[in-house]
Simulated assay, not measured.
Amino acid sequence: MLRTLRNYVFWAYERGSLHYDIMVTAILLFVFITPHLWNYNDRPVFHLPSQVMVDNDGSGELVYQVRATDVQKEAALTGNTDLALRHIIEPIAGDVRIERYEVVPGVSDNHPVAYKVWAHR
């Protein structure tokens, strides 16, 4: 019994044998079944905006600052500023709910430079 177990650990069985097939089957079961049993909290990242700053507002809440050009590009695709902000922030913060956002105006003109977003998980 110990010899069989040792041979499994050191992968000592020849290819095509019954024990080799059992080891391969066990590995495949582990690979395909464990993601359904355990949540690894991994998500694919489809795109990351060029610049998103994350800051603490002092009360423990995180504030995300997103460039206005990134929001405008995304809003042209989605048709909604709230949805555009959420699409930009989610790859960084995960699944979030936007509480509120503010437009940060430029210094010399009133064109928006950035958006400050308060979002919660």
Results as ranks from 00 to 15, higher is better:
M1Y: 01
T4E: 04
T4C: 01
R6D: 05
V9R: 15
F10W: 12
F10I: 12
A12M: 05
R15H: 06
S17M: 00
L18T: 10
H19E: 15
Y20D: 10
D21M: 14
I22W: 08
M23V: 12
V24N: 11
V24C: 14
V24S: 13
V24H: 12
T25F: 15
I27D: 05
L29G: 15
L29I: 14
F30M: 03
V31W: 11
F32M: 12
F32P: 08
T34S: 15
L37Q: 10
W38F: 04
N39E: 10
Y40F: 11
N41R: 04
D42E: 09
D42Q: 10
P44F: 05
P44H: 04
P44K: 06
V45T: 00
F46D: 13
H47L: 15
S50A: 10
Q51C: 08
V52N: 00
V54P: 07
V54R: 14
D55R: 09
N56L: 08
D57V: 05
G58D: 13
G60R: 02
L62P: 02
L62K: 10
V63K: 07
V63G: 05
Y64P: 01
R67A: 14
R67V: 09
T69R: 04
V71F: 06
V71T: 08
Q72N: 01
Q72R: 02
K73L: 08
A75L: 06
A75D: 06
L77R: 09
L77M: 06
T78P: 01
G79P: 00
G79F: 01
L83I: 12
L83D: 14
A84I: 06
A84H: 06
R86V: 04
R86C: 03
H87N: 12
H87D: 05
E90P: 03
E90H: 06
P91Y: 07
P91W: 07
P91R: 09
R100G: 10
R100Y: 13
Y101E: 07
E102A: 06
E102H: 04
E102I: 02
V104T: 01
V104K: 01
P105G: 02
V107D: 08
S108W: 10
N110R: 04
H111P: 06
A114M: 09
V117L: 11
V117Q: 09
V117H: 07
W118P: 03
W118N: 04
A119D: 03
H120M: 10
H120P: 06
R121S: 12
